[in-house]
Simulated assay, not measured.
Amino acid sequence: MTQIAFTESDERQELRKAVARLASKFGREWFTEKARAGEKTTELWLEIGKNGYLGINIPEEYGGGGGGIGDIAAVCEELAAQGCPLLLMVVSPAICGTIISRYGTEDQKQRWLPGICDGTGTMAFAITEPDAGTNTHNITTTARKDGDEWVLNGRKIYISGVDEAENVLVVARAEDARTGKVKPVLFVVPTDAAGFEYNAIPMEIVSPELQFTVFMDDVRLPADAIVGDEDGGLVQLFAGLNPERIMAASFSTGLARFALDKAAQYAKERTVFKEPIGAHQAIAHPLAQSHIEIEMARLMTQKAAALYDAGDDMGAGEAANMAKYAAAEAACAAADRAVHTHGGNGITQEYGMAGLLVATRAGRIAPVSREMILNFVAMHSLGLPKSY
Protein backbone atom coordinates (compact mmCIF):
# COMPACT_ATOMS: atom_id res chain seq x y z
CA MET A 1 0.00 0.00 0.00
CA THR A 2 1.34 3.40 -1.02
CA GLN A 3 2.06 5.75 1.87
CA ILE A 4 0.90 9.32 1.35
CA ALA A 5 2.48 12.13 3.36
CA PHE A 6 0.05 14.80 4.54
CA THR A 7 2.73 17.18 5.75
CA GLU A 8 4.01 19.80 3.35
CA SER A 9 7.43 19.69 1.71
CA ASP A 10 10.10 22.35 2.18
CA GLU A 11 9.41 23.40 -1.40
CA ARG A 12 5.72 23.99 -0.61
CA GLN A 13 6.66 26.00 2.47
CA GLU A 14 8.95 28.18 0.37
CA LEU A 15 6.15 28.65 -2.15
CA ARG A 16 3.90 29.91 0.65
CA LYS A 17 6.52 32.42 1.79
CA ALA A 18 7.08 33.70 -1.74
CA VAL A 19 3.36 34.19 -2.40
CA ALA A 20 2.91 35.89 0.98
CA ARG A 21 5.72 38.31 0.18
CA LEU A 22 4.19 39.14 -3.19
CA ALA A 23 0.67 39.62 -1.82
CA SER A 24 1.88 41.72 1.11
CA LYS A 25 3.07 44.35 -1.37
CA PHE A 26 -0.60 44.85 -2.25
CA GLY A 27 -2.42 44.07 1.02
CA ARG A 28 -5.95 44.39 2.35
CA GLU A 29 -6.21 48.16 2.13
CA TRP A 30 -5.33 48.11 -1.58
CA PHE A 31 -7.76 45.22 -2.15
CA THR A 32 -10.73 46.92 -0.46
CA GLU A 33 -9.98 50.26 -2.15
CA LYS A 34 -10.19 48.51 -5.52
CA ALA A 35 -13.43 46.81 -4.54
CA ARG A 36 -15.14 49.94 -3.24
CA ALA A 37 -14.08 51.90 -6.31
CA GLY A 38 -15.49 49.27 -8.65
CA GLU A 39 -12.03 48.49 -9.97
CA LYS A 40 -10.28 45.17 -10.61
CA THR A 41 -7.23 43.48 -9.10
CA THR A 42 -5.76 42.75 -12.53
CA GLU A 43 -2.33 44.03 -11.48
CA LEU A 44 -2.09 41.42 -8.71
CA TRP A 45 -3.57 38.69 -10.92
CA LEU A 46 -1.01 39.23 -13.70
CA GLU A 47 1.82 39.49 -11.16
CA ILE A 48 0.85 36.08 -9.76
CA GLY A 49 0.83 34.71 -13.30
CA LYS A 50 4.17 36.29 -14.22
CA ASN A 51 5.80 34.64 -11.21
CA GLY A 52 4.47 31.22 -12.20
CA TYR A 53 2.06 30.80 -9.29
CA LEU A 54 -1.24 31.06 -11.17
CA GLY A 55 -0.75 27.89 -13.20
CA ILE A 56 1.44 26.03 -10.76
CA ASN A 57 -0.89 22.99 -10.91
CA ILE A 58 -0.91 22.82 -14.72
CA PRO A 59 1.60 20.73 -16.73
CA GLU A 60 4.82 22.48 -17.67
CA GLU A 61 4.40 21.93 -21.41
CA TYR A 62 1.41 24.30 -21.34
CA GLY A 63 3.10 27.05 -19.34
CA GLY A 64 2.35 25.70 -15.89
CA GLY A 65 4.50 24.65 -12.97
CA GLY A 66 3.80 20.92 -13.12
CA GLY A 67 2.64 20.83 -9.50
CA GLY A 68 -0.51 19.52 -7.89
CA ILE A 69 -3.73 20.84 -6.42
CA GLY A 70 -1.95 21.21 -3.08
CA ASP A 71 0.35 23.81 -4.63
CA ILE A 72 -2.38 25.97 -6.14
CA ALA A 73 -4.36 25.64 -2.89
CA ALA A 74 -1.34 26.96 -0.98
CA VAL A 75 -1.19 29.97 -3.33
CA CYS A 76 -4.90 30.63 -2.80
CA GLU A 77 -4.58 30.42 0.99
CA GLU A 78 -1.57 32.72 1.23
CA LEU A 79 -3.22 35.37 -0.93
CA ALA A 80 -6.28 35.34 1.33
CA ALA A 81 -4.10 35.38 4.45
CA GLN A 82 -2.60 38.66 3.24
CA GLY A 83 -6.08 40.13 2.81
CA CYS A 84 -6.28 39.57 -0.96
CA PRO A 85 -8.68 36.63 -1.44
CA LEU A 86 -9.06 35.95 -5.16
CA LEU A 87 -12.11 33.84 -5.91
CA LEU A 88 -11.04 33.30 -9.51
CA MET A 89 -8.10 31.27 -8.18
CA VAL A 90 -10.68 28.63 -7.30
CA VAL A 91 -12.32 28.80 -10.70
CA SER A 92 -9.77 29.41 -13.46
CA PRO A 93 -6.66 27.33 -12.66
CA ALA A 94 -8.19 24.83 -10.23
CA ILE A 95 -11.55 23.86 -11.78
CA CYS A 96 -11.15 24.77 -15.45
CA GLY A 97 -7.41 24.14 -15.59
CA THR A 98 -7.77 20.73 -13.98
CA ILE A 99 -10.63 19.57 -16.21
CA ILE A 100 -8.94 20.73 -19.42
CA SER A 101 -5.59 19.25 -18.35
CA ARG A 102 -7.21 15.92 -17.65
CA TYR A 103 -9.80 15.63 -20.41
CA GLY A 104 -9.04 18.23 -23.09
CA THR A 105 -7.60 17.41 -26.50
CA GLU A 106 -4.05 18.45 -27.27
CA ASP A 107 -5.38 21.36 -29.33
CA GLN A 108 -7.62 22.51 -26.47
CA LYS A 109 -4.76 22.35 -23.99
CA GLN A 110 -2.53 24.40 -26.28
CA ARG A 111 -5.34 26.89 -26.91
CA TRP A 112 -6.56 27.55 -23.37
CA LEU A 113 -4.06 26.44 -20.72
CA PRO A 114 -1.23 28.98 -21.39
CA GLY A 115 -3.67 31.88 -20.92
CA ILE A 116 -4.95 30.36 -17.69
CA CYS A 117 -1.35 30.07 -16.48
CA ASP A 118 -0.19 33.60 -17.22
CA GLY A 119 -3.51 35.26 -16.36
CA THR A 120 -4.25 36.64 -19.81
CA GLY A 121 -6.88 34.00 -20.65
CA THR A 122 -8.87 33.64 -17.44
CA MET A 123 -11.74 31.14 -17.60
CA ALA A 124 -14.92 31.23 -15.53
CA PHE A 125 -17.06 28.21 -14.60
CA ALA A 126 -20.85 28.01 -14.91
CA ILE A 127 -22.88 25.25 -13.29
CA THR A 128 -25.34 26.81 -10.79
CA GLU A 129 -28.85 27.61 -12.00
CA PRO A 130 -31.74 29.55 -10.42
CA ASP A 131 -34.08 26.55 -10.22
CA ALA A 132 -31.52 23.81 -9.60
CA GLY A 133 -29.40 25.16 -6.77
CA THR A 134 -27.48 22.38 -5.09
CA ASN A 135 -29.18 19.71 -7.19
CA THR A 136 -26.92 19.69 -10.24
CA HIS A 137 -28.94 16.80 -11.70
CA ASN A 138 -31.75 19.29 -12.31
CA ILE A 139 -29.88 21.80 -14.44
CA THR A 140 -31.89 22.76 -17.51
CA THR A 141 -29.32 24.50 -19.72
CA THR A 142 -29.56 22.46 -22.91
CA ALA A 143 -27.19 21.68 -25.73
CA ARG A 144 -28.53 20.33 -29.00
CA LYS A 145 -26.70 19.32 -32.12
CA ASP A 146 -27.30 21.24 -35.31
CA GLY A 147 -25.17 19.75 -38.05
CA ASP A 148 -21.53 20.14 -37.01
CA GLU A 149 -22.38 22.72 -34.36
CA TRP A 150 -23.93 22.80 -30.91
CA VAL A 151 -26.60 25.27 -29.80
CA LEU A 152 -26.81 26.25 -26.11
CA ASN A 153 -29.84 27.70 -24.34
CA GLY A 154 -30.24 28.35 -20.65
CA ARG A 155 -29.52 30.50 -17.64
CA LYS A 156 -26.86 30.36 -14.94
CA ILE A 157 -26.58 32.31 -11.68
CA TYR A 158 -23.83 33.30 -9.22
CA ILE A 159 -21.13 32.89 -11.83
CA SER A 160 -17.92 34.51 -10.64
CA GLY A 161 -15.79 36.90 -12.66
CA VAL A 162 -17.47 36.59 -16.06
CA ASP A 163 -16.48 40.18 -16.83
CA GLU A 164 -12.82 39.26 -16.32
CA ALA A 165 -12.90 36.03 -18.33
CA GLU A 166 -12.30 35.33 -22.00
CA ASN A 167 -14.21 32.06 -21.81
CA VAL A 168 -16.62 30.23 -19.53
CA LEU A 169 -16.64 26.46 -18.98
CA VAL A 170 -20.39 25.75 -19.06
CA VAL A 171 -22.12 22.63 -17.78
CA ALA A 172 -25.08 21.83 -20.03
CA ARG A 173 -27.28 18.83 -20.70
CA ALA A 174 -27.48 17.06 -24.03
CA GLU A 175 -29.80 14.29 -25.14
CA ASP A 176 -28.21 10.90 -25.71
CA ALA A 177 -29.31 9.76 -29.17
CA ARG A 178 -29.16 6.11 -28.12
CA THR A 179 -31.04 6.22 -24.82
CA GLY A 180 -33.02 9.44 -25.07
CA LYS A 181 -31.77 10.40 -21.61
CA VAL A 182 -30.00 13.69 -20.90
CA LYS A 183 -26.35 13.74 -19.90
CA PRO A 184 -24.00 16.46 -18.62
CA VAL A 185 -21.60 17.87 -21.21
CA LEU A 186 -18.90 20.51 -20.76
CA PHE A 187 -18.49 23.38 -23.26
CA VAL A 188 -16.03 26.26 -23.46
CA VAL A 189 -18.05 29.33 -24.40
CA PRO A 190 -16.38 32.64 -25.37
CA THR A 191 -17.82 35.52 -23.34
CA ASP A 192 -18.17 37.57 -26.54
CA ALA A 193 -20.19 34.87 -28.32
CA ALA A 194 -23.44 35.94 -29.98
CA GLY A 195 -26.37 35.20 -27.68
CA PHE A 196 -24.22 35.14 -24.54
CA GLU A 197 -25.15 37.90 -22.08
CA TYR A 198 -24.51 38.54 -18.38
CA ASN A 199 -25.70 40.93 -15.70
CA ALA A 200 -23.97 41.70 -12.40
CA ILE A 201 -25.77 40.71 -9.19
CA PRO A 202 -25.59 43.34 -6.40
CA MET A 203 -23.78 41.68 -3.50
CA GLU A 204 -22.94 42.70 0.07
CA ILE A 205 -19.49 41.11 -0.13
CA VAL A 206 -16.69 43.66 -0.51
CA SER A 207 -14.80 42.16 -3.44
CA PRO A 208 -13.50 43.31 -6.83
CA GLU A 209 -14.69 39.97 -8.24
CA LEU A 210 -18.36 40.19 -9.13
CA GLN A 211 -21.15 37.64 -9.41
CA PHE A 212 -23.31 37.37 -12.51
CA THR A 213 -26.47 35.97 -13.96
CA VAL A 214 -25.66 34.50 -17.37
CA PHE A 215 -28.13 34.14 -20.24
CA MET A 216 -27.51 31.90 -23.26
CA ASP A 217 -29.92 32.33 -26.16
CA ASP A 218 -29.08 30.11 -29.14
CA VAL A 219 -25.34 30.35 -28.53
CA ARG A 220 -23.72 28.46 -31.41
CA LEU A 221 -20.49 26.58 -30.78
CA PRO A 222 -18.20 24.47 -32.96
CA ALA A 223 -17.84 20.75 -32.28
CA ASP A 224 -14.44 21.25 -30.67
CA ALA A 225 -15.97 23.44 -27.93
CA ILE A 226 -16.75 20.22 -26.01
CA VAL A 227 -14.17 19.37 -23.35
CA GLY A 228 -13.76 15.64 -22.87
CA ASP A 229 -15.90 12.82 -24.12
CA GLU A 230 -19.46 13.73 -25.03
CA ASP A 231 -20.49 10.55 -23.18
CA GLY A 232 -18.08 11.04 -20.27
CA GLY A 233 -20.85 12.08 -17.92
CA LEU A 234 -20.40 13.12 -14.32
CA VAL A 235 -16.88 11.67 -14.00
CA GLN A 236 -15.45 14.56 -16.02
CA LEU A 237 -17.46 17.15 -14.10
CA PHE A 238 -16.42 15.77 -10.72
CA ALA A 239 -12.78 15.96 -11.77
CA GLY A 240 -13.12 19.69 -11.18
CA LEU A 241 -15.38 19.60 -8.13
CA ASN A 242 -12.96 17.97 -5.68
CA PRO A 243 -10.31 20.60 -6.50
CA GLU A 244 -13.05 23.22 -6.09
CA ARG A 245 -13.74 22.05 -2.54
CA ILE A 246 -10.04 21.93 -1.69
CA MET A 247 -9.58 25.45 -3.02
CA ALA A 248 -12.66 26.70 -1.20
CA ALA A 249 -11.21 25.30 2.01
CA SER A 250 -7.92 27.10 1.39
CA PHE A 251 -9.79 30.30 0.57
CA SER A 252 -11.59 30.04 3.92
CA THR A 253 -8.52 29.17 5.99
CA GLY A 254 -6.66 32.08 4.42
CA LEU A 255 -9.45 34.49 5.36
CA ALA A 256 -9.58 32.96 8.83
CA ARG A 257 -5.84 33.44 9.31
CA PHE A 258 -6.12 37.06 8.20
CA ALA A 259 -8.95 37.74 10.66
CA LEU A 260 -7.15 36.00 13.51
CA ASP A 261 -3.86 37.79 12.86
CA LYS A 262 -5.61 41.16 12.94
CA ALA A 263 -7.48 40.25 16.12
CA ALA A 264 -4.39 38.97 17.90
CA GLN A 265 -2.41 42.07 16.98
CA TYR A 266 -5.20 44.34 18.22
CA ALA A 267 -5.51 42.33 21.45
CA LYS A 268 -1.80 42.89 22.14
CA GLU A 269 -1.98 46.63 21.56
CA ARG A 270 -5.39 47.71 22.84
CA THR A 271 -5.08 48.59 26.53
CA VAL A 272 -8.08 48.86 28.85
CA PHE A 273 -7.94 48.67 32.66
CA LYS A 274 -4.14 49.11 32.59
CA GLU A 275 -3.27 46.02 30.53
CA PRO A 276 -3.73 44.76 26.96
CA ILE A 277 -7.13 43.15 26.41
CA GLY A 278 -5.37 40.01 25.21
CA ALA A 279 -4.36 39.37 28.81
CA HIS A 280 -7.99 38.58 29.63
CA GLN A 281 -9.16 35.03 29.02
CA ALA A 282 -12.49 36.27 27.63
CA ILE A 283 -10.47 37.57 24.69
CA ALA A 284 -7.53 35.15 24.69
CA HIS A 285 -9.47 31.87 24.81
CA PRO A 286 -11.74 32.47 21.81
CA LEU A 287 -8.74 33.52 19.74
CA ALA A 288 -6.77 30.48 20.87
CA GLN A 289 -9.76 28.31 19.98
CA SER A 290 -9.83 29.82 16.49
CA HIS A 291 -6.13 29.08 16.04
CA ILE A 292 -6.79 25.42 16.88
CA GLU A 293 -9.80 25.22 14.55
CA ILE A 294 -7.92 26.83 11.68
CA GLU A 295 -4.93 24.50 12.02
CA MET A 296 -7.21 21.44 12.08
CA ALA A 297 -8.96 22.65 8.92
CA ARG A 298 -5.61 23.32 7.23
CA LEU A 299 -4.43 19.81 8.07
CA MET A 300 -7.57 18.25 6.58
CA THR A 301 -7.13 20.42 3.48
CA GLN A 302 -3.55 19.21 3.10
CA LYS A 303 -4.75 15.64 3.45
CA ALA A 304 -7.41 16.14 0.79
CA ALA A 305 -4.88 17.68 -1.60
CA ALA A 306 -2.38 14.87 -0.99
CA LEU A 307 -5.02 12.21 -1.68
CA TYR A 308 -6.19 13.98 -4.83
CA ASP A 309 -2.67 14.42 -6.18
CA ALA A 310 -1.99 10.74 -5.45
CA GLY A 311 -4.97 9.76 -7.60
CA ASP A 312 -7.18 8.55 -4.75
CA ASP A 313 -10.39 10.17 -5.98
CA MET A 314 -12.64 8.38 -3.50
CA GLY A 315 -10.54 9.27 -0.48
CA ALA A 316 -10.04 12.78 -1.80
CA GLY A 317 -13.79 13.26 -2.20
CA GLU A 318 -14.47 12.52 1.45
CA ALA A 319 -11.51 14.57 2.69
CA ALA A 320 -12.24 17.52 0.38
CA ASN A 321 -15.81 17.78 1.64
CA MET A 322 -14.67 17.54 5.27
CA ALA A 323 -11.96 20.14 4.66
CA LYS A 324 -14.38 22.57 3.05
CA TYR A 325 -16.83 22.14 5.96
CA ALA A 326 -14.19 22.54 8.66
CA ALA A 327 -12.56 25.53 6.98
CA ALA A 328 -15.82 27.42 6.50
CA GLU A 329 -16.82 26.87 10.13
CA ALA A 330 -13.38 27.97 11.35
CA ALA A 331 -13.48 31.07 9.15
CA CYS A 332 -16.94 32.15 10.30
CA ALA A 333 -15.91 31.76 13.94
CA ALA A 334 -12.60 33.58 13.42
CA ALA A 335 -14.28 36.53 11.70
CA ASP A 336 -16.90 36.81 14.42
CA ARG A 337 -14.27 36.69 17.16
CA ALA A 338 -12.11 39.21 15.32
CA VAL A 339 -14.99 41.68 15.13
CA HIS A 340 -15.80 41.16 18.81
CA THR A 341 -12.16 41.59 19.82
CA HIS A 342 -12.11 44.97 18.09
CA GLY A 343 -15.29 46.07 19.89
CA GLY A 344 -16.85 49.11 18.22
CA ASN A 345 -13.85 49.37 15.93
CA GLY A 346 -14.80 45.97 14.56
CA ILE A 347 -17.74 47.42 12.66
CA THR A 348 -15.93 50.38 11.11
CA GLN A 349 -14.55 50.52 7.59
CA GLU A 350 -11.24 51.75 8.99
CA TYR A 351 -10.44 48.42 10.64
CA GLY A 352 -11.99 46.30 7.87
CA MET A 353 -13.26 43.48 10.05
CA ALA A 354 -17.02 43.60 9.52
CA GLY A 355 -16.77 42.83 5.80
CA LEU A 356 -15.18 39.50 6.70
CA LEU A 357 -18.45 38.38 8.32
CA VAL A 358 -20.16 38.22 4.93
CA ALA A 359 -17.09 36.98 3.06
CA THR A 360 -16.52 34.06 5.42
CA ARG A 361 -20.24 33.27 5.63
CA ALA A 362 -20.29 32.65 1.89
CA GLY A 363 -17.97 29.69 2.52
CA ARG A 364 -20.78 27.90 4.33
CA ILE A 365 -22.97 28.21 1.26
CA ALA A 366 -20.69 27.87 -1.75
CA PRO A 367 -19.58 25.94 -3.67
CA VAL A 368 -21.68 23.38 -1.77
CA SER A 369 -23.70 24.00 1.37
CA ARG A 370 -22.65 22.68 4.76
CA GLU A 371 -25.90 20.67 4.89
CA MET A 372 -25.08 18.84 1.66
CA ILE A 373 -21.64 18.03 3.02
CA LEU A 374 -23.25 16.60 6.15
CA ASN A 375 -25.54 14.56 3.87
CA PHE A 376 -22.48 13.28 2.00
CA VAL A 377 -20.62 12.31 5.16
CA ALA A 378 -23.69 10.69 6.72
CA MET A 379 -24.32 8.61 3.61
CA HIS A 380 -20.82 7.78 2.34
CA SER A 381 -18.72 7.85 5.51
CA LEU A 382 -21.27 6.46 7.99
CA GLY A 383 -23.37 4.35 5.64
CA LEU A 384 -26.64 5.98 6.69
CA PRO A 385 -29.67 5.99 4.35
CA LYS A 386 -29.83 8.73 1.72
CA SER A 387 -31.91 11.61 3.06
CA TYR A 388 -32.58 13.68 -0.03
Rank of each mutant, 00 (worst) to 15 (best):
V170Y: 11
G64E: 00
S250D: 13
A316N: 09
P93S: 06
K181W: 10
A263E: 03
Y388Q: 14
R12E: 06
L357P: 00
V151W: 00
E318A: 14
E329V: 14
A335G: 13
A378P: 04
A366I: 14
Y325W: 10
L384C: 06
L152T: 01
L287E: 01
D313L: 11
L87N: 12
G228T: 03
H280I: 08
G344H: 12
E295P: 08
A320Q: 15
N138T: 08
V272L: 15
L260P: 07
E39C: 12
T105W: 06
F6E: 05
R102Q: 05
E244R: 09
N345Q: 14
T41E: 15
N167H: 15
V214G: 00
L186F: 01
K324W: 13
T140F: 04
R364N: 03
G67S: 04
Q82K: 14
T301F: 05
V235T: 15
G133E: 12
K17D: 10
G49P: 11
V90C: 03
G147Y: 02
A165M: 11
T191A: 09
L356W: 03
Q289H: 14
P202G: 02
E269A: 15
R270S: 08
K262W: 00
V151D: 08
H380M: 04
I283F: 12
L210T: 11
I48S: 05
R155G: 09
E77Y: 04
F273N: 09
P190N: 03
A263N: 04
Q82S: 11
V162T: 10
R361M: 14
G161H: 02
E14M: 10
G83M: 06
K268W: 08
K268P: 00
H342F: 15
A319T: 08
A174K: 09
P208V: 13
R245N: 10
D163L: 13
L22E: 06
E77H: 06
I294Q: 13
R16L: 11
T140W: 00
D146V: 03
Y266E: 02
D261F: 04
T213F: 11
C332M: 12
T142F: 01
I127Q: 14
K145G: 14
A333T: 13
S160K: 01
K40C: 01
S250G: 13
R337M: 10
D229S: 12
T7Y: 10
G66D: 03
